[in-house]
Simulated scan of single mutants.
Amino acid sequence: MTSERSFRKPPRRPAVRPLADLVAALVDPMLARKAGLTSGLVAAWPEIAGPRLAAGTRPEKLIWAARRSDTDPFEPATLVVACEGASALRLQHEAGELLQRIDAFFGYHAVGRLKIVQKALPAPAPSRKPRLADIGEQGRQTIAEATARIEDPRLRAALERFGHTVLGRNRAGD
């Protein structure tokens, strides 16, 4: 006696998406409406501006020229950048190179000039990286003994760094 069963496919679950994609989907429309920016530009600013400029600057908004008709030529935007004190002079000096990096980020000549606005920027968030205590000679010897038989030098070095971190965190909590 054979019974016919209909095999149903299990219900499809939505694909797992990175949290950054979900947040960008929510934040990008607000940034575009208020400042003409994308969260991608704001998030990539430290890489675009470089460490020296990123510490004292922040992109505020993109100002696009109004187009009267479809036949008007494309006008690149003006990027308003907020900066503090001495960063304004550095930003002004490196404006040409920064504009090239911004255009490389967008993939086309999107920004034609910078408008510098001096204002206080919020203090950078404190580092959340835990402090590590010195593990001492005994800790280094323990790690060396534990990793002595590992042949691959890159793996051995990675495990030694991991051991230093684990022991340093444990000792810092004592």
Score class of each variant (00 low, 15 high):
Gly112Asn: 07
Leu31Thr: 00
Pro76Gly: 03
Glu137Gln: 13
Ala32His: 11
His93Tyr: 13
Ile116Trp: 00
Leu79Lys: 06
Ala35Gln: 14
Glu151Val: 11
Glu151Gly: 12
His93Gly: 06
Val23Pro: 03
Arg128Gly: 15
Gly107Leu: 00
Leu167Trp: 00
Arg8Pro: 01
Glu60Gln: 14
Pro73Ser: 13
Pro130Asn: 01
Arg140Ser: 09
Arg149Pro: 03
Ala54Asp: 04
Lys9Glu: 12
Ser3Ile: 12
Ser69Tyr: 07
Ala65Ser: 14
Ser3Met: 08
Ala86Thr: 13
Pro46Phe: 10
Gly40Ile: 04
Gly85Tyr: 09
Ala120Tyr: 05
Leu167Tyr: 01
Thr2Tyr: 07
Glu145Phe: 08
Val117Tyr: 05
Ala66Trp: 07
Glu75Thr: 15
Val16Lys: 15
Leu62Asn: 01
Arg12Ser: 12
Glu75Met: 13
Ile116Ala: 04
Lys119Gln: 13
Pro14Val: 14
Lys61Arg: 15
Gln138Leu: 11
Ser87Gln: 10
Trp64Met: 11
Glu145His: 12
Gly139Asn: 02
Gly173Pro: 01
Asp103Gly: 03
Leu89Asp: 14
Ala125Thr: 14
Glu47Asn: 13
Gly56Tyr: 02
Asp103Leu: 04
Glu137Pro: 05
Lys119Met: 09
Asp103Met: 06
Glu94Ala: 15
Leu31Val: 00
Arg33Trp: 01
Gly36Asp: 02
Val27Ile: 05
Ala49Cys: 05
Ala104Ser: 09
Leu62Ala: 05
Asn170Thr: 11
Val80Met: 03
Lys129Ile: 11
Ala32Cys: 08
Leu19Ile: 14
Gly36His: 01
Gly112Ala: 01
Asp21Trp: 13
Pro73Ile: 11
Gln92Pro: 07
Gly96Glu: 14
Glu94Gly: 06
Thr38Asn: 09
Leu53Ile: 10
Met30Asn: 10
Pro10Trp: 09
Pro153Arg: 02
Gly40Gln: 06
His164Leu: 10
Val80Arg: 00
Gln118Arg: 15
Ala146Asp: 03
Ile102Met: 04
Asp21Gly: 05
Pro18Gln: 09
Arg33Asp: 10
Ala95Asn: 02
Ile143Asn: 00
Gly36Ser: 01
Ala20Ser: 14
Gln118Cys: 06
Thr165Ile: 06
Asp174Trp: 08
Gln100Phe: 02
Leu91Ile: 07
Pro153Glu: 04
